[in-house]
Amino acid sequence: MNRNVVLTGVASVTVAAIAVAAGIYFTRAPAFEPVGLLPPADLGGAFTLVGSDGAEFSSGDLSGSGAMLYFGFTYCPDVCPTELARVAGAVDQLAEEGIAVTPVFITVDPERDGPELVGDYADLFHPDMIGLTGSVAQIEQVAEQYGVYYRRVEDGSATDYLLDHSSYIYLLDPTGRLVWMFRPTDGVDAMVQTIVEAAA
């Protein structure tokens, strides 16, 4: 894949489609290596945050479909968009497999990321992506529940700062239970295949 020139706006779909096509037409022996991590048993749980319309949004509103959560911030132009495009690509591929997963973006920068900003940012990546913010206390709590590390990089400016943050994709099952975590190095097709196999 490194040898190809690819736009990931379409690449996640491309990669999976190529993998599927290649698997079927050439090797006929799809090699499958699950990717990701089994989360520590104490991670996860229900949360109540604020949606892009400013109204309360609770994790119960996601029930009925799986969910992929990503914690980031809208002022992040490099890593977060890459990861959210991967989430969006995986969600689309899973839909083709008949597995409904809702993409969710949760800011760890609630002081700057209000409801409208998180909503616009989520919309950029997928029409079904839900953008969530909350009070500082709410975000601290959900981050602690999911083991999300984030820290403001102080540069003396009140508004022009960056955040260090952990970068995992969290997979919730349709009951809201945290079942798996993916890392930035896990390929989209491998993530999808891991979920498809687990759901089979």
């Binding site: 894949m1 020139v5 690819v6 736009l7 379409v10 690449a11 495009a85």
Partner: peptide
Amino acid sequence: IEGPGAVLDLHSD
């Protein structure tokens, strides 16, 4: 300006 989460690989260019 490419897509919002675009990842272009220029290594083979």
